[in-house]
Structure formats: C-alpha cells, structure tokens
Simulated assay, not measured.
Amino acid sequence: MESKNRDNIYAKWTLILGIILTLILPFSIHLFNLEQLGKYGTVGDTIGGITSPVSQLLGSILIYLALKAQLDANKIIQNQVNEDNKQSLIRHDLEQIHELYSFFQNNIKSFGYEKETKGKREVVFGKRAIKSFFQDIEEMNINIHSDEDILKIDGVREILSIINSAKLILQKNKNSKLENEDKEFYNTLIHHELVFSIFPAREIENEDPLSLKKCTMCEIYHGNFPPLIFHRIQELKNEL
C-alpha cells in the first residue's frame, strides 16, 4: 500500500513538472538568439523541437508508472486468488474430516454384539458392545494366527472397519491444509474415542498399552489377541 501511494506521488509531481516545463519553455524562447535559431527553421519548429523531447520523456515516465501500478494491482489480485483457493481447500478438507469423523462415530454406535450375562444372551451396542467383544475374544479357544478363522468370528470385520476408518481420519488430518490447532483438535477427539471405545481396557491402565505376554509361536507380544486385530491397533497407534 505504501509503495502504491509513493508511485502516485511520483506520477503527480512528474506530471506537474512536465506541464510547467511545457508552458515555460515556449515563452523562454526570447532568451535565445532568434537570429541563430532562424537559421535552423521557423520559430514554431524550434519550440516544437525543444518541447517534444520533454513531452516524450514525460510520456515514457507516465507509461512506466502506469504499467508498474497495473503489475502491482495484478499481483495483489493474484495473491487474493491464491488465498481464496487455499481457504477453499481448507474448507474442503474440514468437511471431509468432519464427515469421516461422523461416519466413525456412527460405526461405533451401531456396532452390535451378542453377550452372555448371567446365563442370558443379550445384544448390546456401542462402546459396551466393543468392550464385550475384546473381553470375549481373548478368552476364545481358537487358532488366533489363522486370519481366515478370525474373520469368521462375529464382529471382527466390523471392528476392523472401525479401526480402518479411524486410521483414515488420522491420515487425512495429517495431510490436510488445516491449521495445526485444528489438526490437534481432531487428533484429540480421535484419541479420546479410541481409548474409551476401541482399545481394550488395559489401554487405560498401562503406561505401555497392550504390553502383553510374548507369543511362543510368532514371538510377538500380543498375548491372546489375534495378530490380525493386534497389528491393526498398533498401526493405528503409530498414526497417533
């Protein structure tokens, strides 16, 4: 803005000086030897010859200032366009992350699991269903290293879908154009949901989450958790 005002002042004073010189020089012709000037043409030609270079110089200066002002204006407009595009991308990322988070929450709320309580079977939903699922899966007498057998268990595919959706949100949030404060906000929301909804109860109790006993078959500390689920949870933690 200061540069633009400075150019306007230069243009104004250049124009004023040019007008003054154009008006003064013709009337100053009497100061010269007219007899000598007459050898080179009429008085009108002499006046035109004197004022023409000055007028051309003034015109060149004014054209330069006008072009410079136009370039500055174009630069301001381009910066505004770039800023608008940036804000548009931010709004787009924000809408996508919000939709993904809503989808993630709905998946948690709609997750159903049949649980046995005091000899009776009942279907529970949401966080309670997920907690029951993790409690039961640790106690199941199955080959936990067989992904094919694990996927046949009721609720496994839904749990993996929830974990994958949480991972997708974290990745989208990380690569988005959002400000760091907004990214941290969504990371905090996802972390809260994971700790109190997805991760097993020991996640809250232990400083080293899922610090389970070492498996004698694969020598990985996943306890009686199926590696298919255990590794997905660990991948999700890495995203956090």
Rank of each mutant, 00 (worst) to 15 (best):
S132Q: 11
N106C: 00
F133Y: 02
R91M: 06
D45F: 14
R91I: 06
T42S: 10
S102L: 07
E138W: 05
E114D: 13
L89F: 09
N82D: 15
G112C: 07
S55L: 14
Q78M: 11
L100H: 01
Y64F: 13
S132V: 02
S55W: 15
D136I: 09
T46L: 04
E114H: 13
V124G: 00
K127A: 06
K127S: 01
F32P: 00
I130V: 06
Q96D: 12
D72N: 00
E95V: 13
K118C: 04
I50E: 03
H30S: 13
R121K: 12
F134C: 00
Q87N: 14
E114L: 11
A66Y: 13
L89M: 12
E139P: 00
P53D: 01
I77A: 13
E138H: 06
Q96Y: 09
Q80C: 10
G112Q: 12
Q78G: 08
N74P: 01
S28P: 08
E83N: 15
K120T: 08
S110A: 13
K39Y: 12
D136Q: 02
K131D: 12
I50W: 01
R91K: 10
L37T: 04
Q105M: 10
G41M: 02
F125N: 03
T51M: 05
D93I: 08
Q70C: 06
K39C: 02
I130M: 02
R91H: 11
F111Y: 01
E114V: 12
E122W: 08
I76M: 11
P53H: 03
L71K: 03
L71V: 03
D136R: 10
F111N: 09
L65D: 06
Y113I: 03
F103C: 07
K115R: 15
K115D: 15
K39T: 08
L57V: 07
G48W: 08
Y101G: 03
E99D: 14
G49S: 05
A69E: 05
I137Y: 07
D84T: 15
N107G: 12
I77H: 12
A66N: 14
N107K: 13
D72E: 09
L65T: 00
K86N: 11
L37Y: 04
D45P: 06
I76L: 15
E122T: 06
I63Q: 10
D72R: 00
I29V: 14
Y64L: 04
S28Q: 11
A66V: 09
F133T: 03
G59Q: 05
E35R: 05
E99T: 13
A66G: 10
Q87E: 14
L100A: 03
D72V: 02
F111A: 00
N106M: 10
K39V: 10
Y64K: 02
G48P: 03
I63S: 13
Q80K: 15
D72M: 08
E99W: 09
I47C: 07
